[in-house]
Design a protein around this nucleic acid. Structure first.
Lengths: 332, 332
DNA sequence: CTGAAAGCGCTTACAG
DNA sequence: CTGAAAGCGCTTACAG
């Protein structure tokens, strides 16, 4: 079907398209006579007029679309984040385009291009490894961009994230205070800065605390398998009291599943702290100590930073939010 | 910054915009001379030309955008579904707009309007209660629509879903075969047809099997609380062997958390079957029997049905996929 | 208070 | 092999 246009309304009302446009956009000046105004509104209603935002965008150069690129929208963490971003974006009148990069720089780049072509007003992105060049290009084009969760070391771009290093230090101090002498750090084998921060914050603090760290770094292809392998080693290698710091909720779920399978009790046999929460913890026999990111505030800030840029206030500031270590019952 | 347009390229190359448009769209005819072709391509490359799909859409009346409306993108089930839909949509050259309705018909309607205005080529929707009118309006406008997961009883619209009733019958037969005499059905207090199918399939089969059903129907505002209350009653009221059928993964997670809290063992004290899977099950001490929906195939089919409609093959067929009861260790 | 006109960035018959 | 021109559905200075 052919959709009704402003032109159809104009014809039916016997006025010009300009007049129709003015009343539909309810310009405050209210320069249009009340009679014609009502007539136009009525006609628009009856012929079920739906404005074409693309035509509008073409003229105004604002699409009211924003693109969100996450690693994987089916991942708990990102779908939660996406929801907060969606809500905030809607409030400001934006609609959300979503794409998953799968940690693949080529796909990430493709997504930025796709979104650019669709004329999004800006993008909120969780950049993957080796995507610096892609992001730099957006920045060079003065394209509004805000990073979430992750950040780039070689590219100045607005972003929101938590104090990954500091909160990892806190975890280390806390466990050292519980007299653990050899702690396993379960993380990804990665160059992503925010994950390195988690790892390095933990490592650096461990030196001060005279605590040994056993690193278990896994690839993305076989997370559960490699976590299990790594924990096998950790549990065989020494007789010290055991504690494990999982640097993501996915890793934690893999590790906790291992403990169940091996009948390793938490916290009697091993103390546990995890980065990020997930519903899954509620089914574990013991409440898990975890690090909580203020996702709602971060999402809100990300959208607002983006909106500011879109409205011509260029900004490259990084907002760093405090993550909190929530104490439950998985450390003793 | 002002983005480069086809006009800029034309000027630089000393040709008309028409010529530029032809080579950029690589029309097979290859009517354009190789020399000009190469020149244009080179210029486009160097000035970093990005086509404006909105302008294109305005002319061609195809946006290559599709809208996805789910109840809540942060919900495991929908984010998983969204991911499959994203992948399939991308394959066919579509970009995905996503919105969450929160089971709110007004919000659902708003989203359909928003997406219409953004000129999406079609929508994949999980309709909420009392949204029949909204969907009917889309259908009347011949707007391409496909429902997923859910469906509408009073409106003929293309859709994909599983055989909710039959698989619930199977669950009932299976549990009856295990000699349970009084089974708890945990579901939502809802009028959503696909959920009623789950419930009614179960109930009807229970009559044939001479099995008692205790229904625990909860609202959306306090899922965990009401599930716990309902299970309290079920466990107090009789001395029969216990079995619980949870009609969604959220309900199952709430119920399993209750069992942990109350030290009720699965399957020794209670047998459990859940609709849909979630990562969370992996942290429960016992592997959960669950009903698996073929999400990938359903997503794929949904996108293809939509693509067919967009390409002018109107269809209102419902595709019903077989859900499978996956046996694990939570029933004895 | 209202309209004619230009233009946003494209595509596409049509003519040459 | 290439270009002039119309038009998609809007907005918005400008003129009256």
């Amino acid at each position: 079907m052919k959709r009704a246009s402003i032109k159809d309304i104009a014809k039916l009302a016997g006025v010009s398209v300009a007049t129709v446009s003015y009343v539909l956009n309810k310009k405050e000046g209210s320069r249009i006579g009340e009679a014609t105004r009502e007539k136009i509104l009525e006609i628009a209603e009856t012929i079920n007029y739906i404005p074409n935002k693309m035509a509008r965008s073409l003229k105004t150069n604002k699409s009211k679309l924003i693109g969100l690129i996450v690693a994987d929208i089916s991942n708990d963490f990102y779908s939660g984040m996406a929801r907060y971003i969606e809500d905030e974006a809607m409030k400001l009148g934006y609609t959300l385009l979503i794409g998953s990069s799968d940690e693949n720089p080529a796909k990430f780049k493709k997504l930025t291009e796709l979104f650019s072509e669709q004329q999004v007003d800006g993008m909120i992105i969780a950049p993957v490894m080796d995507s610096d060049e892609t992001v730099q290009k957006l920045i060079n084009d003065q394209f509004p961009v805000v990073t979430v969760d992750r950040y780039l070391t070689h590219t100045a771009v607005a972003g929101v994230r938590v104090n990954n290093d500091e909160v990892s230090e806190e975890v280390c101090r806390f466990l050292a205070g519980k007299k653990f002498k050899e702690i396993a750090y379960v993380g990804y084998d990665t160059r992503l800065p925010h994950l390195l921060d988690r790892q390095q914050g933990f490592e650096q603090q461990s030196e001060k605390e005279k605590v040994q760290i056993q690193k278990i770094l896994v690839g993305l292809d076989n997370i559960a398998g490699e976590v299990h392998q790594g924990l096998d080693l950790y549990f065989q290698n020494s007789n010290n009291r055991k504690a494990v710091y999982f640097s993501s909720n996915k890793l934690a779920v893999a590790g906790l599943a291992y403990f169940i399978q091996k009948n390793i009790r938490v916290p009697e046999d091993v103390s546990v702290i995890a980065f990020d929460e997930t519903d899954a913890y509620s089914l574990f026999p013991v409440e898990i100590d975890y690090i909580q990111q203020p996702l709602d505030e971060m999402a809100k800030t990300a959208v607002q930073l983006l909106d500011d840029q879109i409205n011509g206030q260029p900004s490259r500031k990084s907002m760093i939010f405090p993550a909190r270590l929530i104490h439950k019952k998985s450390v003793q």
